[in-house]
Design a protein around this nucleic acid. Structure first.
Length: 508
RNA sequence: GCCGCGUUGGUCAAGGGGUUAAGACGCUUCCCUUUCACGGAAGAGUCACGGGUUCGAUUCCCGUACGUGGUACCA
């Protein structure tokens, strides 16, 4: 068997959606598992939808995911160029060949004429509104026109498209790696446009030509392409021979968590979770759409979560490294049905991965986030102590700031509602005495502080429990976080005393 | 409308003619913790429906329902 070659073929029209990343992943896993090549080909044949910066953004996302293409517009390769707009002239020749062989034809119909045909067919009660065998001999195309007329029309500069001629009363079948045998009746397949009036190929022609030229062996794409598969198969048959066609797999869709339908960017905005891999700024409106990266996801967790959304190894393992995924992945274990996206589960994956991270790696990532918030780490020993204590409390990288911010900045607001209602003179006394004792204390370990605290509480005849919450609020500002005495020992004697004194002013 | 694809707890899912129908997320309760998380334990919750085939169907077949995708000179 020839070397496995797969491709991801995005259109540079905006942010990179979850489903797109998953398609990348499955392609990549499959390629690497079989020692093959992963190619990224940019499908920019629709100039009207082209968005500035989208292509670069897609590659940034891949980079963040740690996925590098073996061949692409940035990397180059033996089959360059990898941008379809730069391959424009190539496609036309294949379409012309199809015309010569009788598998395609020139069509001069204007959009209005086509629309008119649809209205008429509908009025006549036809089930089909397609441009197909049932109607094409009534349309303005080279099938109906005399050769001279066609030639004259083309020579006159009349805009035209090239359409595939789909034979009726036939069937086309192929084997999908996920779904098995799929058959289509050609009566339901219309004469799709292959070359547009502007000379650009449509997706249908371009994928087939490029997959052939780039020697693609396996083609994986979203399920939304299934209905147009017969067109592609027919093209393969007419142009290159069905035996050279790649093996297809149509991946299940990722659905919105609530209600019905495919997950869209709008669902993320509405339900408060990201849909794009990274922040995407629309160049026209400057509107920013949140990405998983900026929200505090680890790429490993993001990919892991995506892998499990539609694929399952059949074991109980859920947390996978890229290497483990490559090992375990197989296309026949990909689900047929779409899966609803669950942000809670996504966060669970991130938590798992965060805990797997080494202190060094965790620290590096967290530092960057803190710096964005204006906290610069100067004391690494101190930082590591904090990290060790707070590490497991974070689900997202960005949680670290709220979970540990008080280690770097004294609180400026306090949860007074949690303290004041039960605050009294004797508690105030306790803390004043406590400060005194702390000042004398040389051993400022958590254990020692706790002993001092509890002894003093007993002496003053107050339950330690009633004092711990106020103490926590004094040090943290709120009622969360690790053990109070551990916090105290880390921030140190000076800061502990200072924070208690400060809060005492507020509480009284 | 027409065509394609799909349907195991709320969600992701394993399984597959005879099982107490895995596991995970979420949820509830308890333990840990005089905070909040984490962690540990327990619990509730399911084979869309109707016909076949079969000794037996959640599993196979056929319908129905529902969902989803396509039906563009978009990808």
């Amino acid at each position: 068997m020839s070397k496995v070659r797969v491709r991801f073929a995005p259109s540079p029209t905006g942010g990179l959606h979850l489903g797109g990343v998953r398609t990348v992943l499955y392609n990549y896993l499959f390629a690497k598992k079989h020692g093959g090549d992963f190619i990224v080909r940019v499908e920019d044949t629709d100039q009207s939808r082209f968005v500035e910066g989208a292509e670069e953004y897609i590659f940034d996302c891949l980079k963040w995911c740690g996925i590098e293409a073996d061949e692409s517009v940035v990397k180059g390769g033996a089959y360059a160029p990898y941008r379809q707009s730069e391959r424009k002239d190539l496609y036309k020749a294949y379409a012309e060949k199809l015309v010569v062989d009788g598998h395609a034809y020139y069509a001069f119909d204007t959009p209005e004429e086509i629309e008119g045909m649809r209205v008429q067919r509908k009025a006549a009660g036809s089930g089909s509104l397609q441009y197909d065998a049932g109607i094409r001999m009534k349309m303005n195309n080279s099938l109906r026109l005399l050769p001279d007329e066609t030639a004259a029309l083309i020579a006159s500069g009349k805009p035209y498209v090239i359409r595939i001629k789909v034979e009726d009363n036939s069937s086309v079948a192929f084997t999908d790696m996920i779904r098995g045998e799929i058959t289509f009746d050609t009566n339901n397949v219309d004469d799709k446009v292959l070359v547009k009036a502007d000379g650009m190929p449509t997706y249908h022609l371009a994928v087939v030509v490029d997959d052939f030229l780039m020697k693609i062996t396996h083609a994986f794409r979203g399920e939304e392409w299934l209905p147009s598969a017969p067109v592609h198969i027919l093209l393969w048959k007419h142009l290159f021979g069905i035996e050279h066609m790649p093996q297809w797999a149509h991946l299940p869709l990722i659905l919105k968590p609530d209600g019905n339908g495919k997950l869209s960017k709008r669902d993320g905005d509405r339900l408060g979770f990201p849909v794009y891999a990274m922040d995407w700024t629309d160049p026209k409106t400057n509107e920013v759409t949140k990405g998983f990266k900026e929200l505090g996801f680890l790429p490993e967790a993001f990919l892991n979560m995506l892998a499990m959304l539609g694929w399952n190894p059949g074991t109980e393992q859920e947390v996978f490294t890229m290497e483990e995924m490559m090992e375990a992945f197989s296309m026949d274990r990909v689900h047929k049905g779409g899966a609803k996206f669950d942000f809670e589960k996504a966060k669970w994956f991130n938590h798992q991965w965060l805990q797997k991270l080494s202190v060094v790696s965790y620290g590096l990532r967290v530092k960057a986030i803190l710096e964005d918030k204006g906290i610069v780490i100067t004391d690494d020993v101190y930082f590591e102590k904090v990290l060790d204590l707070v590490k497991e409390r974070c689900t997202l990288l960005t949680d670290f700031y709220e979970q540990a911010g008080y280690f770097f900045k004294a609180p400026t607001t306090w949860d007074e509602a949690a303290v004041k209602p039960k605050w009294n003179e004797s508690k105030n006394d306790f803390f004043i005495s406590f400060i005194k004792k702390l000042k004398e204390e040389v051993d400022f370990s958590a254990e020692k502080i706790e002993i001092v605290f509890k002894e003093l509480a007993t002496e003053k005849n107050i339950k330690p429990g009633e004092l711990q919450l106020p103490m926590r609020v004094m040090l943290v500002g709120a009622k969360f976080g690790p053990g109070v005495f551990e916090i105290a020992t880390i921030i140190g004697k000076h800061a502990t005393i200072e924070r208690i004194e400060r809060a005492l002013d507020i509480f009284k």
